[in-house]
Computed example of a mutant assay.
Amino acid sequence: MADNIHTKIKNYKTAPFDSRFPNQKQTRNCWQNYLDYHRCQKARTAKGGDVSVCEWYRRVYKSLCPISWVTAWDEHQAVGTFPGKI
Rank of each mutant, 00 (worst) to 15 (best):
A2V: 14
A2S: 09
A2C: 14
D3I: 10
D3C: 13
H6F: 12
T7I: 04
T7A: 09
K8Y: 05
I9F: 06
I9W: 04
K10S: 03
N11A: 07
K13A: 13
T14V: 13
P16F: 11
F17H: 08
S19P: 02
R20P: 01
F21R: 02
F21V: 11
N23Q: 10
N23F: 08
Q24Y: 14
Q26E: 11
T27D: 15
R28H: 03
N29S: 02
C30N: 00
W31E: 15
W31F: 15
W31P: 01
Q32K: 05
Q32V: 09
N33W: 07
Y34R: 00
Y34N: 04
Y34A: 15
D36Q: 14
Y37N: 06
H38K: 09
H38Y: 15
H38S: 07
R39F: 03
K42D: 04
A43Q: 14
R44C: 01
A46V: 11
K47Y: 08
G49A: 12
G49R: 03
V51M: 06
S52H: 14
S52W: 04
V53Y: 10
V53S: 15
C54L: 04
W56P: 01
Y57L: 04
R58T: 13
R58M: 02
R58Y: 14
V60H: 07
K62R: 15
K62D: 13
S63C: 07
C65S: 03
P66E: 10
V70T: 15
V70A: 14
T71E: 11
A72K: 15
W73P: 01
W73R: 10
D74S: 11
E75T: 03
A78Y: 05
T81S: 15
T81I: 05
T81Q: 11
P83D: 00
P83Q: 00
G84M: 06
K85S: 13
I86S: 02
I86L: 08
